[in-house]
Design a protein around this nucleic acid. Structure first.
Lengths: 172, 172
DNA sequence: CGCAACATGTAAACGGTTACATGATTCA
DNA sequence: TGAATCATGTAACCGTTTACATGTTGCG
């Protein structure tokens, strides 16, 4: 259900085509809300149906430009400020940790070592995003930075946890 | 796809019926991999079909007890040690942060204040789990503790981040 | 000319949620 | 006897992924 709000959020900045939105999902939003081509075009049609966006005339190559309506802005605002945030409930790595008792202590330590390597790689990716992003000075500069900071704090926490966990795996 | 492994993991400890498993999903696994009744019974049938479990004779009230097979244990082990862990990609709160530029600074600060309250409530829940759990001394005591520790570190990190973010929201 | 990029759409499959439906057993 | 618990199953729907399918425009 958040996909539609992600799209409204992008359209709140400026009108765009499905193709434009798709690029933004792959660039800026890839780490917080990925979306496929199939999804974007589908939701775009529904959004226009429900009056939250309007479709402009067809441009070259059948390009359709969508713009957010006042109703769409109101709906985006309602989602941001009133709809409860839902925390993601499923956690693949913790599920596996629960069953680590079925493998040997050495293998369990290997599991946590791999976790450290994986999260370190992700940390590097985020540092690269930090460096390569043109931060400008609009609101997105501030809020994009806040989101990135979450990622950096998360990866640090996760790495430290895995390092600690490795040390407390019982010897047989 | 992880549901089947969660079920194999539970069955690796001891044989159980769908009803038994359901209770364990609601108790111990609720915070890492929730599952519905509908899902459990469906997957149980598939698991038996593919030879990863066996069905015992029907007990009272049509109860069917499932046991993991050697093939099932091998598959569980393969998943634990060889299948790459996938990090969850979607993050509701960060998606919203991206669009906070569309509301006023006061409202943005309110957003982070609510985030602090929500995460504090979750932190309290985890502390309650910590207190109320009978930790015993099997492997689940160790690995359950490690998983819980992740939750405590996560909530602490998230709370500190939201507190910090609140202070750096620009004044208009 | 040919290729990359632009541009849109549909269908099948999958995992998960919600709701419906039914019946047996235990115990107060 | 009536309520709570035990116990299983199915159907409809929703959001997401993967794959298929097609056509246009700009540029070297």
């Amino acid at each position: 259900m958040s996909l539609r709000y992600a799209m409204l959020g992008l359209l709140a900045d400026e009108p765009a085509s499905g193709y434009d939105l798709l690029r933004r999902f792959n660039d800026s939003l890839a780490n917080v809300w990925p979306a496929t081509q199939s999804q974007v075009y589908g939701e775009l049609a529904k959004l226009a149906d429900s009056g939250l966006t309007t479709v402009g005339e067809e441009g070259p190559r059948g390009r359709k430009e969508y713009a957010i309506t006042d109703e769409g802005r109101a709906e985006l605002r309602r989602w941001l400020l009133e709809v409860p945030v839902q925390r993601s409930r499923r956690n693949d790595i913790l599920l596996r940790v629960f069953f680590l008792g079925t493998v040997s202590p050495d293998e369990a330590r290997g599991f946590f070592e791999r976790a450290v390597r994986n999260v370190t790689a992700y940390e590097d990716e985020l540092r690269a995003v930090e460096k390569e992003t043109e931060w400008g000075d609009g609101p997105l500069a501030v809020y994009g930075r806040i989101a990135l900071e979450w990622g950096l704090r998360f990866t640090a926490m996760h790495r430290e946890w895995a390092e600690w966990a490795r040390t407390i795996v019982p010897e047989e």
